[in-house]
Design a protein around this nucleic acid. Structure first.
Lengths: 184, 184
DNA sequence: TCATTCATGTAAGTGGTTACATGATTCA
DNA sequence: TGAATCATGTAACCACTTACATGAATGA
């Protein structure tokens, strides 16, 4: 297995939609994949260099402004398909909210309510964001072939956010019935 | 900010329920926190050593079998409350499934259906696991004060799994209407 | 002219995983 | 007697984050 296959995958994938600069790759990852993927800034350029070295990506000479465009080579496209077909390795779970709720007896019901309310507010905000993304996507015609798939990921985000809100409502109600802290 | 605060938090938290061996800490994290938290094996003992060095955890001398019990000191309890009160730092999102769906046009509807079906099956399995956890928790009386909080995290897992199933059903239906790959 | 955005990188540090290594205890 | 479990650790490696550093183009 190649090292940093995850980052390679994301970079190759965004380049498959259109050739672009490294800066644009970063923006695409942040703006289009942002709600389910992230690459830290300092990783994209090293990854691009390695991909160019391995002939998976082609770099056009820099113009006078110093910017250059990167595009997929045929080999790069093959590699992308291979990576996409490989099973997704999921990062180990680390949900700080759940850890705090699990040991909620130590914090007490009041502090837990605050945490849950915060989560609910975030989920509500996410729903608004997704609604906005849907509106934006309706207007764009150039990526018509991709749009049905993109919509599926938005829908997943919405399902997840609604689930979070439903849980939060139940939990806020339940926490009202919990006894307060003995040792405040 | 302390280094490895996340691991310290998890270790201190499980020790707050009862004193135990390092091995038992590992098992508790895997078995009780497993569905929302993980610590890799090689991190627990170093973390325990550091916590002992900093007087947050007390280590009883090893018996002839070489095992020793760790327990929270009063300072350790304070530190635990501090860490629990700090805002949860969430790891950057990296959802391999969503990445593959987003670029689903490259894989084609059939391959996507397989991925989504797999996700649905996993979620169904999780629901069974949660049902089992609920049954087990009903029987245990010794941690009665913690149980209401533990139940909240199980409920969160159930909400999340049901949301995944609902999304999967919608998505499987939608994918049937997508045009097949042009370049197979 | 000055702030913002576009653009490309490097370097240090670190949190975390994986694999290795060892040995006692328990129970079949 | 031998396998599985309990128990404790180390070492190497790596992916990733954060901060640093630089400079051109754009537009107010």
């Amino acid at each position: 297995m190649a090292r940093a296959a995850q980052t390679d995958l994301a970079v190759l994938a965004v380049l498959s939609v259109a050739p672009m600069t490294g800066y644009a790759v970063r923006e695409a990852i942040r703006d289009q994949l942002g709600h389910f993927w992230s690459e830290s800034f300092g990783q994209i350029y090293p990854a691009l260099s390695a991909l160019v070295r391995d002939n998976l990506v082609e770099k056009t000479p820099a113009d006078r402004a110093g910017s250059s465009t990167f595009s997929l080579t045929p080999t790069g496209r093959d590699r992308l398909l291979t990576l996409l077909s490989a099973p997704a390795t999921s990062a180990p779970a680390r949900n700080g909210l759940m850890l705090r709720i699990f040991f909620g007896r130590l914090l007490g019901p009041e502090a837990c309510r605050a945490l849950v309310q915060e989560t609910k507010d975030q989920a509500l905000g996410q729903l608004e964001t997704f609604a906005m993304i849907r509106r934006i996507m309706e207007g764009e015609e150039q990526y018509a072939e991709h749009r049905p798939y993109w919509t599926l990921t938005v829908s997943a985000g919405e399902h997840s956010a609604r689930a979070a809100i439903a849980w939060a409502d139940e939990t806020l109600a339940a926490l009202e019935t919990f006894p307060p802290l003995d040792h405040p």
